[in-house]
Design a protein around this nucleic acid. Structure first.
Lengths: 127, 127
DNA sequence: TGTTGACTTAAACCTTGGTTTAAGTTGTAT
DNA sequence: ATACAACTTAAACCAAGGTTTAAGTCAACA
């Protein structure tokens, strides 16, 4: 198995090293090994786990909930049902958020149109 | 013109009254009138402006930038170009965020599939 | 008339999600 | 041997976005 340093892991995912240390302290990246000098070593599996953490973060899952998910992974197969339920519920939350954003985007497009086509006045000038 | 109270405005948009006061203090809802007793009165125009603020908030525009936008509205037609540019740029940011979420959703779907179909182990158990 | 209920204010408080700092250790190149 | 770069830690710090608190005002109802 190949290991990489914290600077390499940070570069791979385009995040600061400080964030990696922070996630580890929060329990999102457990069981990180160290070399003889105490420096972190990230295995392929841990980089893959980090990818998962970032995926959940990108979809706005709070850190406390990501930690719960990671804890369930650590507990093994007996938690698969709970993990599945969490992912299904999170998916619905993400779809709802995407819908809200998409809908709100129409309001923005409407403004772009007004400003572009009609040089109309805004809320305060509409008489 | 019809006016409504803070509790009615809060109910219409499903947000706490405290948030309405907070937005006003931050400059997102300027020129709110008061009755003889000092209570806020929201006009149709201001409810419409509040709708705009919430639309921008739903798409994750920071309060400082919403304030800039509102300030430009207050300054009148001379700022229409700037408002248009801001909305166009914001639209791109929103599209990028929706893309990222949609992409990350695939990672979540992948997990849902693994947990549903294969009872497979996660990152730490994949040997 | 007095006591609710809906409002007002300023200021203090809170959570989230990191980032920065200060001080120390280690490995490698000169 | 020494200096530099890459790491380590705990703790302090920060910004964003509200929420809560405490103390007060006012209108209407019993």
């Amino acid at each position: 198995m190949k290991y990489c340093s914290i600077s390499e892991a940070a570069a791979k995912f385009h995040i600061p090293e400080s964030t990696l240390r922070y996630y580890e302290k929060k329990g999102l990246l457990p069981l990180i090994e160290r070399d003889a000098a105490g420096r972190r070593l990230y295995s392929e599996n841990q980089l893959s786990l980090l990818g998962t953490v970032i995926c959940l973060k990108n979809t706005h899952m709070p850190i406390s909930q990501i930690k719960q998910y990671i804890d369930w992974i650590l507990q093994g197969d007996s938690t698969i049902e709970r993990r599945l339920a969490m992912m299904k519920q999170h998916k619905q939350a993400v779809l709802a958020e995407i819908s809200l954003m998409t809908e709100s985007l129409q309001g923005i497009d409407f403004k772009i149109n007004r400003y572009t086509n009609h040089q109309s006045k805004g809320e305060l000038g509409q008489s």
